Simulated scan of single mutants.
Amino acid sequence: MRGFYSKLDSSSVSTVVPLNLAVETEKAQALLQTFSTASLLASGGLGAFCFLVDPFLALPFIQEHLWLRAVLDNAVHGIIGLWSWAIVIGLKKKSDFYEVVLAGFLASIIDLDHFYMAGSWSLTKAVSLPRRPPLHCSSLIPVLSFSLRLIMWFCRLKDSWCSLPWMLFISLSSHHIRDGVRRGLWLWPFGNTAPISYWLYLSVTATLPHLCSVLMYLTGTRDMISSKHGIAIDV
């Protein structure tokens, strides 16, 4: 009997050890992909895009037309949001494309709160507000992201939705950081920061996807993303 149990115990241990090793290997590979060559090139491309598009938006023929300026500026917010999320999850299959489009949509739709606060669809009124509209309060970003996570937990949504709070985080953050170049960040109840320097804005925008990926790894979300999208998470 002693020999039988010894045999059973040794076989159980030999099964558990490779399994744990496989899990840890998958975690390590997922974290390494956060800083893979492809993802670093993609974030460099994101910074370059911001550097090139901002002088274009400052051209006189764009600045002279209010609607054109607003539409293009909002489109850039959307592109930065979807590009940032693409760096986080990669574009491996069709569903990934839908996710990055949703991230871009979230990054651009924030500006609707200008019209809400103005109480009118007049663009002139929307861009001439006496104070910032509610969704432009940077203090709300962690609150909204955490609240969404709690709602998902309470509703017992599937793991396939686990990345949604992080998508919201990166979409809102990228929008606020870009706006911060002109007016700083509104950190209620502490007030506004000084305007963000242009080079800091470029640096933070390019590195934000990697910061988000590391935070997702530390909170365990990265493991679920790896199972959903495959281990090779890069663009």
Rank of each mutant, 00 (worst) to 15 (best):
R132S: 09
S122A: 10
V143P: 03
L112R: 05
A58S: 12
Y98L: 15
V101D: 02
L59Q: 11
M167W: 00
P142M: 05
D73Y: 10
I80V: 14
L112S: 12
S108G: 11
L129T: 03
V101S: 01
F169V: 10
K94P: 02
P55F: 04
V100S: 08
V143E: 01
L59P: 01
L91M: 11
W67T: 09
D54T: 14
H176K: 07
L168E: 04
G104L: 07
C162G: 13
V71T: 12
S138A: 15
R131N: 08
G90Q: 06
L144E: 03
H136W: 11
G119Y: 01
L57R: 02
I177V: 15
W67Y: 10
S174L: 05
A70W: 12
L68V: 13
S139W: 04
K125F: 03
A118R: 01
A103M: 06
L157R: 14
L123A: 00
G104R: 06
S163H: 13
I141H: 07
A58Q: 15
D73M: 07
G78V: 09
R131T: 15
I110Y: 01
L68M: 10
F49D: 04
A118T: 01
G47F: 03
G119V: 04
S160V: 14
K94L: 14
D179K: 05
L82I: 04
L57C: 04
M117W: 01
A58I: 08
L82R: 00
P133C: 04
A48T: 14
C50Q: 08
R131H: 13
K125R: 13
K93D: 15
L68F: 07
M167T: 02
R69S: 14
L106W: 09
L46M: 09
S160T: 15
V127D: 03
Y116W: 06
F105W: 11
I62V: 15
F97V: 15
A86H: 02
W153V: 13
L157K: 12
E64P: 02
S120Q: 06
R178W: 06
I89P: 04
S122M: 04
S95V: 14
S128W: 00
V143T: 01
L148F: 14
S174I: 12
S174V: 14
S84G: 15
S163R: 13
W83I: 04
L59R: 12
C50D: 09
I110C: 01
I141M: 07
V76P: 05
A48E: 08
H65K: 10
I110S: 01
I141C: 07
D54Y: 11
P165G: 05
M117E: 03
W83K: 05
S163T: 10
L82G: 07
P55N: 02
S174Y: 05
H136K: 11
I80E: 07
A107T: 08
S95F: 11
S139E: 07
L82K: 00
S171T: 09
I87M: 09
Q63Y: 03
S163N: 11
K158E: 15
S139H: 01
L157I: 10
A103G: 10
D54I: 11
D96G: 12
L46R: 04
V127R: 00
S163V: 11
R131F: 09
A103C: 09
F97C: 10
F105L: 14
L72E: 06
A58H: 15
Y116A: 03
L135D: 01
L112Y: 14
M152W: 10
V53T: 14
A126L: 03
M117A: 13
S171W: 07
D111K: 00
S120W: 00
